[in-house]
Structures are given as C-alpha cells and as structure tokens.
Design a binder for these strands. Sequence first.
DNA 1: CTGAAAGCGCTTACAG
DNA 2: CTGAAAGCGCTTACAG
Lengths: 335, 335
Amino acid sequence: MRVVTIKDVAKAAGVSISTVSRVLNDRRDVDAGTRARVWAMIRQLNYVRNQSASNLKQQSTSAIGVILLGRRNSFLTALAEEIMEAGRGSGFVFVMDILDEKANPILAARRLFLERRLQGVIFLGANLEGMDGQLATLELPQVYATVQAGHLPYAHIASVSIDNYRAGRMAARRLMDLGHRDIALMGYFAKADDSTGQRLHGAVDEMREAGHPHDPALFAEVNFTLPSAYAGAISLLDSGKPFTALFACSDIIAIGAIKALHDRGLSVPGDVSVIGFDGLESGRYTIPELATIRQPSLEIARTAVRLLRGMIEGAPAEHVLLDCELVEGQSLRAL
Amino acid sequence: MRVVTIKDVAKAAGVSISTVSRVLNDRRDVDAGTRARVWAMIRQLNYVRNQSASNLKQQSTSAIGVILLGRRNSFLTALAEEIMEAGRGSGFVFVMDILDEKANPILAARRLFLERRLQGVIFLGANLEGMDGQLATLELPQVYATVQAGHLPYAHIASVSIDNYRAGRMAARRLMDLGHRDIALMGYFAKADDSTGQRLHGAVDEMREAGHPHDPALFAEVNFTLPSAYAGAISLLDSGKPFTALFACSDIIAIGAIKALHDRGLSVPGDVSVIGFDGLESGRYTIPELATIRQPSLEIARTAVRLLRGMIEGAPAEHVLLDCELVEGQSLRAL
DNA sequence: CTGAAAGCGCTTACAG
DNA sequence: CTGAAAGCGCTTACAG
C-alpha cells in the first residue's frame, strides 16, 4: 500500500511541507485560501498523518496514559470508561493500555511515555507490592486508582481509593448483625498492598473482635472469573463445613458462587446470604439482586483525573480515601 | 523526566549507536563481550527504546491490527482475546484498538497502519453498511470477523462469521417447535449488512413461512446494554400484547429482559421462554441458565488469523461461514 | 503569511 | 565485528 506523506500533499497543493504542517496543526497563521487548498488535497489524497513521526518530533503532548491491569475485571474496565468521560473537554488525550494482571505496569507506563510523550499516568488496579524501587524510576505524575498508596513518599505519586480494609469490616459486620456466625470468605489473601487481601483481612479482624473468629476452613482462594468462583464455592460445600453467609470480594465471584449454591439445591438468601464487592451494573440484574459494597466509581474516576491534572500543574500529590456504601440488594437475610 | 536515548547507552558502553541498535534487535553479528556490555548499560540506565522513532524508520513490521467496535460488547471483547491467543507463537504482534460503535473503523485502521506499519487488520463487529468506497481505499489485507462480507469483490478483504440470517431462523424455529406463537423480538432491525438485523429478519421470515407471522407490536428496539434491554422488555409488557416467548439477539439483552420479566412477577421459563444469542460465558451462570445460539468464537478467532496470514502470504481472500449451535439451557419450555 | 533547514531517535545498507 | 552516514515523516524556531 502506497503511503501518502506530507510531501505528497505539499506538492499537490503547491506549498511547502511547513505550510501543510501548519494546516494540520490548526495554526492560525495560514492564509485562508491556502488552508482551503491544502485541506482539499489532504482529503483528495486520503492523507493521514504518521503519528510516529509526529510524536518523535513533538516536544510535548497533552496525552495521559491509562493503564489497566486485568482485562477481565469488569469493575476496572467500567472505571476506565468513566475516567475518559471525566477527562472529556479537559484538553487531554487519553491513551489506554490494557495489561494482564501479571504484567509489569511500570514498564508499560514507561513504554507508553516514550511512545507518546505522556504528561502523566493513571493506573487502574495496579498491585504496588514490591515495586517501590521501580516506582521511583518513573519520574512522571502518577495516580493509582482503587489502590491505597498513602505510604509511598514520592511527590509525583498520588492515589484515590476506598478504604478496602474498613470495607471488608463493613461487610462482615453486616452479616454478623443479621445473625450470621458461620461466614465463608472468597477471594485471595494476597500481600499487604493488595486491595483484595485487605478486604478479607478486614472481615477476619471484624469477626475476631466480635468474638466470632473466622474458621480458616471456610475460605476459598479464587480469582476474578466465574468458573474459578464456581469451583471455589463447590469446594467449600464439599468440605462439609456448614455456613449460612458468604462474603465474596468481588461481584463476579459472588455471581459464580450463587450459581454453585443454586446447583447444589441451596437458595440465596434462603439458605445462604451472599454479599459481593464492587457494585457492578450486572449485579443489579441478577436474580436475586446482589448485595454488595459499592465502590463510588464515578467519584474515583473524577478524583483520579483531578489529582493528575493538579500534579501536572505543580500541585503536590494527595492520597484520597473515598467512602463506600453497602447496597442491600436481595441476597441477604436475617437468621 | 530525563529520557535516556540510544546515544546515552552508546556513550556509556563505549560503542556506536549502530552497535547498540544491533544488540537491541538481537542481531547475531555482534561480539558476545560487546553485547553483554551494552545490555548491562541498557539495564543500568533503564533504557527503553522509543517506539515512534523505531517505527518511523522500520520498513516493515510483523504487526497485525485488531480493531474492535463496541467496547461494551462482551462477545467481541472475549473474541479479541481468543484472536490474540490464536496468534500466539505465529511471530505476529497484535495491536488492539477499541472503538465506539459509531466510530469509523476504516479511519482507525488507516491510522493504526501508518503508526505501526501493519501487515493486516482484523475487524471485530464492524458494520459494513455504506462503507464500500472506503473499504477500497484501505489496500491492506483485511478480515471481517462476525460479519458477512462475501458480497464484497475485493481481493484483499476476507470474512468469517456464522450465517446470522439462518441463525435467526433457527431460534424462531425452536420456539415454534415448542409450541410458541406469540414471540417477542428484541434488538434492532438495522441495515442489510448488520449482523443483528439479519438475525431478526431470519426470525421474522421463519415465522411468516410457518404461517405464524410476527406481530410488529411485539418488537422492542434496544442496544446491547442491560438498562436498555430492561427498559425494552418493560415497554413490551406495558404494551399489553401478550407473548409466551422472547428471542433477544444478544445474551446481554436476554439477561436484562429476564430481570424485567422477573420484576413484573413473570417466571422464566414458566411464563415466558427466552432465548439469547452469542453464547457468552456469563449466560451459563444465570439462574436459569440461558438458552442461546452459540457462535463458535474460538473457531472464528482461529479462522480470522488463518485467513489473514494466508492473504499476507499472497493467498486469495476467502469468505467463511461457520456453523452455530443452539444451546438449550434452562430458559425454554414447551407450551 | 510562507519556506528552507535542523533535528527528533532510531535502523540499515555500505565500507572497512 | 564495528562505525559513519543517510534518511524515515514530521515540527518548529528562524528568516524573510
């Protein structure tokens, strides 16, 4: 395929490439007639600017990177859209990159920065565990969304999230208030900096302090997929340990678990009360509607954009904790 | 942020930039000792290659573009992953771009081509209606996945999909075989080249030929989101026209509709039988499990990659129609 | 308002 | 095995 370059356009329009470039970049110091002629040729030749060349030369852009870890995490993909929405009209261009959970987000951010001359980066769902050294090497304004990073002493690193530990406590507290004592937990107890682990640690601590310590046999380690959640719930049931309530640290996990309970003849909430986490849209369309801890995704999105803009303009990094909300749904029942 | 370039690495390692470039590109004509020294500096300086510069210079790459229309279409996002999976080990690099339904995929493909020197493009969910002219201007091997393009006379355009029209007939036939006559339809009757419209047209034709013509009052136009599907089903119920079965032209639509039926006190399949379309994973975790027309997504993915590789190596374009399968689930009932 | 020229960071023949 | 040089397609001071 023959590639049309700025040179071809210049020749066809009878001007220099400088002028074509000015037209392309909407500079006003071009004669109206010239501009029209150049645009006509751009269209006629189907010219599209070579971004690589443009980026290479351009000293600064207004691009912001959005790096999402976990392509199947519905909460994060929805959050990414809300961030783009929140940034609309701000003059920033968002460049999104979706990575595997296991990928290295810092490396991805660096690559994106070099490719697109980013002004800053928003990370969604990044796990900060053990990355302290690398964080320092990416000297770019960064916002970690959904992840608590308040302990990081870097002036260019901000964060916005809920208090996952307290949210975990809230879920357990609600189940205990309803009279439940045998409470199963699903998710994974990861490292300290992991949101998921913090939710579970919160629940365990709340139960212990209430005098109803969690039985480790009532824990299933699963990832954020339906099949994994289904299998985890089945293994809990097969273990023979009875439970009357279940706290899943994501709505997807809760949905998979509810199906497993149903397939084993147990009703929700008749036999088992279930509460999820995130507040996904799809949880409002399940039967029964899912009780959950709703993360305020719109507010997280808006705050992330605000924090990043602030840092780009020289403001210091902030670490914002937002409130989350317990949504009752129809999957809870008092004993 | 200070950017480390190939020049810095060259100086630090005491070699020319040519040599650094050779090391970066894994050429074998570099002394082992030199190579080690250069790599050490690359790591020490945290050097990452500037892709823009690299792309600009490079005459050819082995990149394939994957352009997805509709970021909330779960079927397509899953398909995109399967395509990347199918291409693993093929030596191709996949560059994905996710667009709005309304965006122009040809423009996006052209931009990606110029940015990344693509060898070819796979489109997912593109609507070909009225784009014939533009298709010709993108002289790059192209595969349209999930969309029938057999009528397009271009040597560089292939396609792989199911026969959406026949699939629509299949769904209607099954409902009629179960004794249903009052069948509601949900989706949109778009233009001729639209997969969704073809499904509905197939259902309508099948019903007419069976002597049970579809009542236009039993149609709700909705898009592929849960709230839209919910509202559409409510409006069908409010219209007062009774129906005992519903064909939704995507599983997401079916799930939203089932929730609406439930909220109005109707049980599925007790009062209304529901069949969806696509065969999403999440449809296997609903209660009841969703009957659906399953598109063979893995086979679509593999075929798309195979067709594109073939064209890149000079093979002629093919248009492949794959079989789809009716999955019974638990949401159908005989009258 | 317009053009000639330098240069962004790479890769790649070409010489040696 | 290695380096000097040309050039990819743009943008942007600098002159006029």
